[in-house]
Amino acid sequence: MAETDQTRIAQQFIEAIPHARALGMRVDALGEGSATISMPWAEHLVGDPRSGVVHGGVVSALMDTSCGAAVMSHPSGPSSTATIDLRIDYMRSATKGQRITARAECYHMTRTVAFVRAVALDEDEANPVAAATGAFTVER
């Protein structure tokens, strides 16, 4: 299957998730055990009204979704996945008005558990906004 087809199918998958749709998430790329998903800045997602920076929870939702997508795109073909744990390090505030992109990679897979890491970026790609590591269940 061509990669663009796979990305299109992943986008349909994302749009079937009410919360991902509510946040306006878009699948930018999908590889073998990796996923890049982004979403726009929005006024109602602001967590600090003084600076207009989006709430950490929004970054969590984007990270969690991209990590889950990375697990689902793994060549071993899991049938479903769920988050066991997710740790997020907030390195700096995402810039007001800029799109946030999460790149996730499933770096190790066992029969039952997937180990995933991710970074969240705004337009200044050299300076990550946040980093995440997580463990996910794998259903076969």
């Binding site: 079937a16 998730i17 009410p18 919360h19 991902a20 749709r21 509510a22 709430h55 950490g56 929870g57 929004v58 969590s60 939702a61 984007l62 990270m63 969690d64 979704t65 889950g68 479903s80 769920a82 988050t83 997710l86 997020i88």
Partner: peptide
Amino acid sequence: KLIGNPMLPAIHGGVTAAFLET
């Protein structure tokens, strides 16, 4: 709009994280 898995259905893990962090 809080749903993350429409099949089960289940609340999105990101929503749970956001709720706890808040």
